[in-house]
Design a protein around this nucleic acid. Structure first.
Lengths: 353, 353
DNA sequence: TAACCAATCCAAAGCGCTTTGGATGGAAGG
DNA sequence: CCTTCCATCCAAAGCGCTTTGGATTGGTTA
């Protein structure tokens, strides 16, 4: 049994020609009716639509794409191995995309990134024409992928920011502002020894966050203790381990800013493990990407956060992508989302134990 | 600027014809050389391959698919709204798929599920021929989608199990065994009041787990307290709320089995919140799908779990999918994975407070 | 030497759709 | 009554690839 055989089996779909024959119309007219072109009588269109529904006709996507030169899918590239970035953040992001793209019947193609030669994966994805556009995530400060896509004039939206001279579409949250607010709030409460545990160095978001942190401390003339700045993956484990280390420092930090909910779980655990209470001896502010299954306000104590919904951002990015594909000039398509500080119980004035 | 215009811009890709011309060969030969057919001289093949590489030629995927009737992509349908099932489990699952499918340059298409008419989404996905096969997740005991796909003779692999009379490919973990083991272990430790907080009712995995739980308790002649069986979504919040409720019951459960790590986080929180210690007054066993960012053995206390890597399962499913597509009879393609009980500190003999 | 064969390569026919560049026919205009 | 003009509809030409059914070549066999 080869592929062709099997093909025949589930080629339930009828063809345009057959439908046209059944209706005694030309393929042209049927096609136009279905695709909403004006040069077809409304009565005819309705007849066609009804028939299509009745016979369960649905255009062969590949033929359609081949003819139109458009695909109806957007691509996103995720690292395959080692889960590096395929964690809850990515999941939320995909969920957000799905939410919006469902509207336009655009679906998305996840291309796994095997080796680390990202650029070539991007190039192949482009030249094989399987997607109309690409979403680029996790940019570095100067991102090679972005400049490549710009040069290739391939449509894309960047989630995050990068420094390439040329205009392109992007959406980012104010990471600097987020950490600035968090740090400032802690400073206002009286903290003087504040640590941060954030994502890996090299990514823009991570650098921006550190900038915000430094800015806040700098404004108050507080010297930066480099032992208090941690960059690593977002995970419970890192949060725990680094907090253990931090709490053994002298002076001991009285407050920690965590870059993700996962990290924060580890931090909270370590804090308890040392016999401290969150919001008392150690304050904690977390950046919250809003995971539906992990709610900051339901925690004990409830968690002070800088909040920005990853899912909402993804939905918006999908929207921007559609605009890019509709030919809107990319210079107009970018947004910087402010991040709210939501004060709850995990942050309070420092209490000496 | 319309679509065609833009197309022209980034149609960097050269065509088969052009490549053939450059090589003074026919399209046929070039195509065959590239696709590894035997009827082409090795020297010629090499020449072709080199040229393809040099000019950056990559076949237009749509044309290729249209000609071959094969797509090179598999589909998976996820609910778009409300994040119902697009949580960390789905993310891990996708990561696992990606890991394996990268090999064969198969990519996957995530079709968002908007309204709740799953069947019609599946049908459209099939008839529009954008995927070669589908992965079906979260089956119910009698799953309509599965029987539909079997009837349509469309290739698929089921993640989980369902009762339809006909043969089909599936992979499932031994959910019943998992909960049976967990409950038995707790019983061995001396617990007599054991609660379970698992996933939503109706899904096979959830029903199987309850079966295992009931089996273990039944074997010891322990009466089942229906207040102690909870079915709901997997989330920290549910875990917390339900545990609070359980701990207010008389008799109070001395052990809880949680269906997911997310749930367990909430359970642990509630236990602490009531002044109890995990592994002492209240024991906790969690089913662990192995999230890289949430490690059971790193928790405090370390968590007793029934472990089964979601990611590994997905990788295996991808493999099975390839076999299905290669025409292997589906009766041979199914696996039931055992689940290991890993005893750590969160479970211990009951301690009266 | 003629007949045959394996190894290579090619021309052309699809795959199922969109779209260009007309036909066609009845209504409106002179 | 004859032209002009919309409003509809159609035939046929691609889109870029795979694959069928031969053609060609040089070497073997009888």
């Amino acid at each position: 049994m080869d592929r062709t055989d099997r093909n025949v089996v589930w080629t339930s779909g009828m063809k345009l020609k057959e439908l046209a024959d059944k209706l005694s119309l030309s393929q042209t007219t049927v096609s136009r009716a279905l695709n909403g072109y004006p040069e077809v009588n409304e009565a005819t269109r309705e007849r066609v639509n009804k028939a299509a529904l009745k016979f369960g006709y649905s255009a062969n996507a590949n033929a359609r794409r081949l003819a139109m030169g458009r695909v109806g899918a957007i691509g996103i590239i995720v690292p395959a191995e080692s889960s590096q970035r395929f964690g809850p953040h990515t999941a939320e992001f995909l969920a957000g995309l799905a939410e919006r793209l469902a509207h336009d019947e655009i679906d998305f193609l996840i291309s796994p990134l095997v080796d680390n030669d990202e650029i070539s994966v991007y190039k192949r994805l482009i030249s094989s024409k399987r997607v109309d556009a690409i979403i680029v995530s996790h940019p570095s400060l100067v991102d090679e992928r972005v400049s490549m896509l710009i040069d290739a004039k391939f449509p894309f939206v960047l989630h995050g920011r990068t420094n390439v001279g040329k205009p392109h579409a992007w959406l980012d949250i104010d990471n600097q502002g987020a950490f600035y607010q968090a740090a400032s709030h802690l400073l206002d409460l009286g903290h003087r020894h504040i640590a941060m545990i954030d994502g890996l160095r090299g990514f823009t978001f991570s650098e921006h966050r550190e900038l915000g942190y430094r800015q806040a401390l700098g404004e108050r003339g507080i010297e930066i203790d480099s032992r208090f700045i941690v960059h690593d993956r977002f995970s419970d484990e890192i949060g725990f381990r680094e907090t253990q280390r931090l709490l053994a420092c002298t002076p001991q930090p009285t407050a920690i800013i965590a870059g993700s909910m996962m990290t924060a779980l580890g931090v909270a655990r370590a804090v308890r493990n040392n016999g401290y209470q969150l919001g008392k001896q150690v304050s904690l502010i977390t950046h919250d990407d809003v995971f539906p299954y992990l709610n900051a306000s339901n925690m004990v104590p409830s968690m002070t956060t800088t909040r920005s919904s990853m899912r909402a951002a993804a939905t918006r990015i999908a929207e921007m992508l559609v605009r890019v594909l509709d030919g809107e000039p990319v210079d107009d398509i970018h947004e910087l989302w402010p991040v709210d500080l939501i004060v709850r119980q995990s942050s309070g004035p420092p209490v000496s134990s």
